[in-house]
């Protein structure tokens, strides 16, 4: 429990640190992604993931659906756009997402099979 909280705290602090540097330098990059890449390089240099970071990350991942509730409610703010083009939006988020999923999965499967391994 303490390890998990320490891990979450560490991830939040790292995010704030990168965000601070980003603001100071005025860089147009997403802080969370830059922080994630830095952390990945750190793991690679250590050749291991510290246990508390692992537990914190897992805990956050488990509650991702909870964390997405407010941004989904925020769709109310763009209600006018959603309601004026419901078909385009519906096709984009359902049909085309499934196209992307299926193409990725099948392409990977086909390429791997060609090389004689599954």
């Amino acid at each position: 429990m303490i390890k998990t909280l320490a891990g979450i705290g560490f991830l939040v602090l790292l995010l704030y640190a990168v965000d601070g540097i980003k603001q100071a330098l005025g860089l147009p990059v997403p802080s969370a992604i830059v922080a994630m890449l830095l952390l990945t390089f750190f793991f690679a240099s250590q050749r291991r993931v510290p246990d508390f970071v692992d537990q914190g990350a897992k805990a956050l991942m488990r509650v991702i659906p909870l964390l997405f509730i407010p941004p989904l409610v925020a769709i109310l703010d763009v209600r006018a756009m959603v309601l004026s083009h419901p078909v385009v939006l519906f096709l984009a988020v359902t049909g085309s997402t499934l196209v992307g999923l299926v193409v990725t999965g099948l392409l990977y499967k086909a390429l791997v099979r060609k090389r004689g391994r599954v």
């Binding site: 891990g7 979450i8 991830l11 939040v12 790292l14 995010l15 969370a32 992604i33 922080a35 994630m36 890449l37 952390l39 990945t40 793991f43 993931v49 970071v53 692992d54 914190g56 990350a57 897992k58 956050l60 991942m61 509650v63 991702i64 964390l67």
Partner: peptide, 8 residues
């Protein structure tokens, strides 16, 4: 922070 944690 969860996105940062995807580093794992």
């Amino acid at each position: 922070a969860a996105v940062v944690g995807l580093a794992v």
